[in-house]
Design a protein around this nucleic acid. Structure first.
Lengths: 143, 143
DNA sequence: AATGATATGACGATCTTCGTATTATTCAAC
DNA sequence: GTTGAATAATACGAAGATCGTCATATCATT
């Protein structure tokens, strides 16, 4: 397989640079006060892994568990998460979304959807399929 | 123009989700202690805009100028940036990289290059061109 | 000169991260 | 079944980051 050229790499780098600045979720819309990045990530993880524990989040996000402890604490205090002690292991904590938490996650998802729509806007229908296919290939490649 | 399907949006969302977690620059390699995200961005901005002032950075990164003041202060203290008072406007400050700062930026650039190489790895030569083209189209689209 | 605008920094309140130490519970081995 | 190591989570505090208010120096205009 031939290697990418320096020019290709440079172009890609410049594009990503602008990309990450441009397509970033502007939180702080709506009445709720914004969540910091870690808290948002943690909230999403719980949404996708109900009944998970703090250590699962810490492992997944690769941050110290004490940091996640603080994060879940904030989320519980803000009424977005709830803790329960599962009977089968009373050391653990099972996290779950509250109704408010669910509402918040749904809001984020809608915002992401909008962002992705805007992103695909400049591409033709054929290009969209190709783009999504390549992103998938890049992300789920082993290596 | 037809709209993207829900399925397309969902696939793209899932891919980006993993993408941002996977392709993130692991700082803290090498002997130097890691820079936080803002400081890194500021350092890069100065690298690309020599003689710029703190307010330019603040405007570009869309953060309060006092935050940038703290950031440049840290960078100067660490010996990565230097301040000079331009004669033509003695209120202002002109920022520039020190040799150490240049070294640091070059290190980051090399790391980014590696990351982009890895990213393009799973794509064929034709796909690479197409991918970079679409990224460019997405990023530099007016809208 | 006087006024207003501009560039920056000082200071402090508040929040975040994360290392150390603590508590509660489970599990393994004897 | 008791003891001891391992595991899940949190309390606490130090260090650092963000950002608002205020102060200072320097233009630019009249």
């Amino acid at each position: 397989m031939t290697h990418p050229t320096d020019k290709q790499l440079a172009t890609l780098g410049a594009a990503f640079n602008t990309f990450t600045r441009r397509y970033k979720l502007a939180d702080a819309l709506g009445p709720d006060k914004p969540l910091n990045e870690l808290d948002k990530q943690a909230l999403f993880y719980v949404a996708e892994h109900p009944e998970c524990g703090p250590s699962d989040i810490a492992r997944f996000l690769a941050v110290p568990h004490t940091t996640i402890s603080s994060a879940t604490d904030r989320l519980v205090k803000r009424g977005l998460l709830k803790r329960t002690r599962p009977e089968e292991d009373r050391r653990a904590v099972a996290l779950g979304l509250t109704d408010e938490g669910r509402r918040r996650v749904d809001g984020f998802l809608a915002a992401y959807r909008q962002m992705h729509l805007r992103m695909l806007g400049p591409l033709s229908a054929a290009e969209r399929d190709a783009f999504i296919g390549m992103m998938t290939k890049i992300v789920y490649d082993e290596g």
